[in-house]
Amino acid sequence: MEYQNIKLIKEGHIAIMSINRPEAMNALSTGTAREILAALEEMELDDDVFAAVFTGEGDKAFCVGADLKERKTMTREEMKRQRALFVRAFTAVAEFPKPLVAVVNGFALGGGCEFALGCDFIIASEKASFGLPEVGLAIIPGGGGTQLMPRVIGRSRAKELIFTGRRISAQDAYKLGLVNYVVPPEQLMEKTIQVMREIVKNGPVALRQAKRSINLGVELELNTALALEAECYNVCLATEDRDEGLLAFNEKRKPVYKGR
């Protein structure tokens, strides 16, 4: 598929999906949401992609949320249809089965912050900032923010950020546990690729099952969660990659995983 609003490239087993609307601060338009859904499906179905990056083009913004210039021209019915599309896009990011890392190079506001929260973890530039300012527009975060933010930083801190609509710096986000790394802007992609290479050297089936076990199990009662973990482990046990991993260990070489 040819994309107009995003870029999708591959580097080895790593896919990099970038919102490509820097002139609009990578705001989320109808067309962009459709292309994000298409790209996520393309990356999921590509067995050669073990893990993916979600970022934004330029150095100003990861994504500043909905494109309000587009929205002001829409009828109420058109806005309802767009809203349903946006929910699908946010859900697809949160439910993407392979490791998905957000790389935030500037503003991650509103829906942009929610996209980042929906990823497995965040690597941020020192210039990045985060916020869920929706209450200032008399609405609430609607892309998962009220559910994801409390799970990442805790209920009371999430309430404060959402109730005030406050924007926080990358360093403050790091202190809250919202982001995993904060690096100088010129080192952002270098750090990202370093981390991603550490991920994709591992078995892709194991990566997917580890993500499934964590995401589904974290809110479960412990005995049920442990049963889920055992189920995910057994999926890995029956793969060719498991055999390759043991063989490579015994032969003192790097394994060559194929996702089977």
Rank of each mutant, 00 (worst) to 15 (best):
N20S: 13
G31S: 09
A51R: 12
R166T: 06
R208C: 07
S29L: 13
A94C: 01
G111T: 13
A227R: 12
A33M: 06
T146W: 00
D172M: 12
V218Q: 14
S125E: 07
S169P: 07
I36Y: 01
A52I: 11
V101C: 06
G111A: 03
F130W: 11
A170M: 01
P150H: 03
N223S: 14
E190I: 15
T75W: 01
I19E: 05
V152L: 07
V103D: 11
T91C: 02
L148K: 13
D241I: 01
A51I: 09
A128P: 04
E42D: 01
M79P: 00
A173T: 05
A27W: 06
K98T: 06
R83L: 06
A206Q: 10
N26Y: 08
P255H: 12
D172R: 11
E240G: 08
G111P: 05
G65Y: 10
V195G: 00
V179D: 04
N5I: 03
L247S: 08
A206Y: 06
E35H: 12
S125G: 06
L226H: 09
A173W: 05
E244P: 04
R34Y: 10
P22I: 00
Q209R: 14
V101T: 07
A170R: 02
Y174I: 03
Q171D: 11
L226I: 09
E219L: 15
P141T: 01
Y181H: 09
V179C: 13
G259F: 09
L178P: 04
G106P: 03
G65A: 10
E221G: 03
N5V: 01
T164D: 09
V205S: 00
A210T: 15
G154Q: 03
